[in-house]
């Protein structure tokens, strides 16, 4: 177990700089998730930590020691890949023990270490099989076992659940969370799936274009997104964004009027409101619009409301059943309103 420190890490491909000044400290036992859209550099960062990708500048420290020029095998890490990366010609057992054999661990010691790992992941009956004879979920379990048995200082996960179907993804996610609770190994997990990030992470590192957009616990990022990008990326259904005027007593324009959150500079602002923050009521005047679309999501219903200038999505309990074309009024508590600077995209309240 160890602390991972990235100090001003930089990555260039030829003349193209894809990452600059990446600073991050992952604490002992911490589960950090790199979250971001594809091409944001999260996998590149993980591969630099693993040693599979050269670090162009800056310093990487694991457990206090500089790792920049060390081989992947000497960094005390173990990695789980998106496409499992199992050795296709080896049995499950050989796949799991390959790393220990290469590090010169004795036969008896390997057998001792194999038993608990195989048990933890329920792989007992598959040990003699080849990877091709296993399902995707089982293959990824073997890959996790292969990483676990090395008792690494740091676990690296590169989108481990992206190739699995939705149901399996859910159950394996729970399993990864349980393993981390038991082993407490420092972990870095890359994903583009916000649900995985929210449920697994102690801390989310939200990335965009090779930079850290925001860092914080899932609650912090959800409740107080630092930028318009963070606000739009986290949360389903997506946040509504409106361009409005902020004055002393209200926030809005000639069609919309919300109560103004205090302590912010006045003028043009970008306002973000989550669909679930709206309350429907007869007399509400904050936003009135006609129902354009009505999607049934099970427990809730996603309704789009449109007036002459704005269109918003609101999430309401499923028993509210407005007809298409009906006019609805909604209101929002001022604490649920996120205000951003339209120029810089930074949070104002």
């Amino acid at each position: 177990m160890a602390i991972v420190e990235c100090r001003a890490i930089r990555k260039v491909y030829g003349a193209l700089e894809v990452m600059r000044d990446f600073d991050l400290k992952v604490d002992d036992h911490e589960f950090v998730v790199f979250l971001g859209p594809s091409g944001c550099g999260k996998s590149t960062m993980l591969r630099m930590i693993a040693g599979l990708e050269e670090i162009s500048g800056g310093e990487l420290l694991i457990g206090g020691a500089r790792m920049n020029d060390r081989d992947p095998g000497d960094r005390g890490i173990a990695m789980v890949f998106q496409n499992y990366a199992l050795y296709p010609h080896m049995s499950v057992r050989e796949n799991i023990t390959f790393g220990l054999e290469r590090s010169g661990v004795g036969k008896a010691a390997i057998d001792d270490r194999l038993v608990p790992v195989v048990e933890a992941l329920g792989l007992g009956v598959y040990l003699a099989r080849k990877p091709a004879e296993l399902s995707g979920g089982q293959q990824q379990r073997v890959a996790i076992a292969r990483a676990m048995i090395k008792t690494p200082e740091v676990f690296l996960f590169d989108e481990p659940l992206s190739n699995l179907d939705a149901k399996l993804r859910g159950s394996l996610r729970v399993e990864i969370a349980r393993l981390h609770r038991d082993l407490k190994t420092t972990s870095i997990y890359v994903t583009h799936d916000q649900l995985e990030a929210m449920t697994l992470a102690d801390r989310i590192v939200l990335m965009k274009d090779g930079r850290i957009e925001q860092m914080g616990t899932p609650e912090e990022i959800y409740q107080a997104p630092a930028t318009v990008f963070a606000a739009g990326f986290i949360g389903t259904p997506n946040m509504n964004f409106l361009q409005l005027q902020l004055t002393e007593e209200w926030l809005g324009d000639n069609l919309v009027k919300f109560a103004a959150p205090g302590g912010i500079r006045q003028g043009e602002v970008t306002v973000g409101i989550r669909p679930g923050s709206f309350r429907v009521s007869e007399e509400a005047q904050a936003f009135r619009g006609t129902v354009e679309r009505n999607e049934f999501h099970g427990e809730t219903r996603l309704i789009s409301l449109k007036n002459e200038r704005h269109e918003i999505n609101i999430s309401v309990p499923a028993h509210i059943r407005p007809a298409i074309g009906e006019v609805l009024g909604v209101e929002v508590a001022s604490s649920d309103i996120h205000v951003f600077d339209p120029g810089t995209g930074l949070r104002l309240n």
Binding site: A50, G51, L52, D71, P72, G73, D74, I77, A78, M79, F81, A85, L86, Y87, F98, G99, R102, S103, R146, K150
Partner: peptide, 8 residues
Amino acid sequence: EAARIDRA
């Protein structure tokens, strides 16, 4: 790559 991480 996995083999490199496995110290091969």
